[in-house]
Amino acid sequence: EQLARLKREFNENRYLTERRRQQLSSELGLNEAQIKIWFQNERA
């Protein structure tokens, strides 16, 4: 579920704002660094 949600977010926007990253962190139970790194890896 977390992965599917991250992929949906990535398809909508390849870059997250700090606020959006905080929201996802709270909703998915991941820390902000994990989300940031995931997005960086997807863009690579």
Results as ranks from 00 to 15, higher is better:
37 I>R: 11
15 Y>C: 14
35 I>W: 00
37 I>K: 12
24 L>S: 03
16 L>D: 13
10 F>L: 02
8 R>I: 11
29 G>D: 07
44 A>D: 12
28 L>M: 06
31 N>C: 12
23 Q>L: 12
10 F>E: 03
10 F>P: 01
22 Q>I: 10
4 A>P: 04
13 N>P: 03
5 R>K: 07
16 L>H: 03
10 F>W: 06
14 R>W: 10
28 L>N: 01
30 L>A: 01
12 E>V: 05
15 Y>D: 10
14 R>Q: 14
17 T>K: 04
6 L>R: 02
4 A>E: 13
1 E>T: 06
4 A>W: 00
13 N>M: 03
41 N>Y: 08
9 E>V: 06
25 S>H: 02
20 R>L: 12
13 N>H: 11
11 N>R: 11
2 Q>P: 02
34 Q>P: 00
43 R>Y: 11
24 L>G: 01
13 N>Q: 02
35 I>Q: 00
43 R>T: 07
27 E>W: 04
24 L>P: 03
32 E>P: 11
16 L>G: 03
6 L>K: 02
40 Q>F: 09
19 R>F: 11
9 E>Q: 03
32 E>N: 03
25 S>K: 04
19 R>G: 14
40 Q>W: 06
38 W>Q: 03
16 L>A: 02
6 L>P: 00
31 N>Y: 04
7 K>L: 13
30 L>F: 02
30 L>D: 00
26 S>L: 15
33 A>C: 15
44 A>M: 14
1 E>L: 08
7 K>E: 10
27 E>M: 08
40 Q>K: 08
2 Q>R: 08
8 R>Q: 14
41 N>M: 12
12 E>L: 08
4 A>L: 09
39 F>A: 00
38 W>M: 05
7 K>M: 11
29 G>K: 03
34 Q>I: 15
28 L>V: 06
33 A>M: 14
9 E>I: 06
1 E>C: 11
23 Q>V: 11
38 W>R: 03
26 S>A: 14
37 I>H: 11
3 L>F: 04
25 S>I: 09
35 I>P: 00
32 E>K: 04
21 R>S: 15
6 L>M: 03
7 K>G: 06
16 L>F: 03
30 L>N: 00
25 S>M: 10
31 N>M: 07
27 E>G: 01
19 R>M: 13
32 E>L: 07
15 Y>M: 08
36 K>H: 14
10 F>S: 02
22 Q>F: 06
5 R>I: 09
27 E>Q: 07
10 F>M: 02
5 R>L: 05
2 Q>D: 07
17 T>C: 11
30 L>E: 01
6 L>Q: 02
8 R>E: 13
3 L>Y: 05
7 K>Y: 07
12 E>W: 06
25 S>P: 01
20 R>H: 08
5 R>G: 04
4 A>D: 11
37 I>P: 00
26 S>N: 13
40 Q>G: 05
39 F>W: 15
32 E>I: 09
39 F>L: 03
20 R>P: 04
21 R>N: 10
3 L>N: 08
18 E>W: 03
30 L>P: 00
42 E>D: 02
17 T>V: 04
26 S>I: 15
5 R>M: 07
3 L>I: 13
24 L>D: 03
40 Q>H: 08
12 E>M: 07
11 N>K: 12
20 R>K: 12
22 Q>T: 10
28 L>P: 01
32 E>H: 02
21 R>V: 15
31 N>F: 05
36 K>V: 15
8 R>P: 02
16 L>I: 11
42 E>S: 04
34 Q>M: 14
8 R>T: 10
41 N>Q: 11
23 Q>T: 09
28 L>R: 00
18 E>R: 15
37 I>F: 08
38 W>N: 02
17 T>L: 02
14 R>T: 04
40 Q>V: 06
2 Q>L: 13
35 I>L: 10
15 Y>F: 13
22 Q>C: 11
36 K>Q: 15
37 I>S: 13
40 Q>L: 06
32 E>S: 09
44 A>H: 08
6 L>N: 02
29 G>W: 01
21 R>K: 12
25 S>L: 07
8 R>A: 14
26 S>C: 13
41 N>F: 07
3 L>P: 00
33 A>D: 15
36 K>A: 15
26 S>H: 13
9 E>W: 04
43 R>S: 12
43 R>G: 08
24 L>I: 06
8 R>S: 11
34 Q>D: 14
30 L>H: 01
33 A>F: 11
33 A>T: 13
29 G>V: 01
22 Q>S: 10
4 A>H: 08
1 E>V: 06
4 A>C: 13
34 Q>A: 13
30 L>S: 00
10 F>Q: 02
5 R>P: 00
28 L>G: 00
36 K>F: 09
